[in-house]
Amino acid sequence: MDLDANRSLIVTALARIPGGDRAALQTVYRLTSAKLFGVALRILGERSEAEDVLQEVYVTVWRKAADFDTGRASPMTWLIAIARNRAIDRLRATRQSRHMDRMDIASDVADSAPLADKALESAQDHARLHGCLDGLEPRERAALRGAFFDGNTYEDLAARMKVPLGTMKSWIRRAMIKLKSCLEQ
């Protein structure tokens, strides 16, 4: 779907939710649930848990739609953040650590994965983030990916990459500082 049309449909529907408009929530659901389900499934790895989280996400959207600030975030960024947060909370609540197996793949691959959803962000933003990620050391990039996509904690990442916890914290913090500075250029 056309990016701007889709975005404005979501924004318009979000604005109707605080008035108690259930059809508006259903519109938001129709336009965004496949993406948010994908996000939850990626982090949790199990359909039934991702389904529970998806339900929590839209009930949260129903309650918090008035908080959405069009001046500050794109609607998809806001919704995906809610979905990631809920999925990570669920992950933390249900198990100690998992998704360890995916780190091997991530650690060797430069960050040039194809854009699965072109409608989400402009290709330019995507290229910029990836340009900055490619400027990080491979181990830093692997750690960031392992956290963002698979919900790994500092402890998970330290264990998986066989470094002390303090080292992992330093890597991630240094990488995030570098990333911010690169994106601001």
């Binding site: 994908g38 991702a50 998806l54 989400l120 995507h126 996509f149």
Partner: peptide
């Protein structure tokens, strides 16, 4: 945010 674009959609 652009990173999330890489995550495939899955119909619930």
């Amino acid at each position: 945010a652009p990173w999330a674009g890489e995550i495939a959609e899955v119909a619930p």
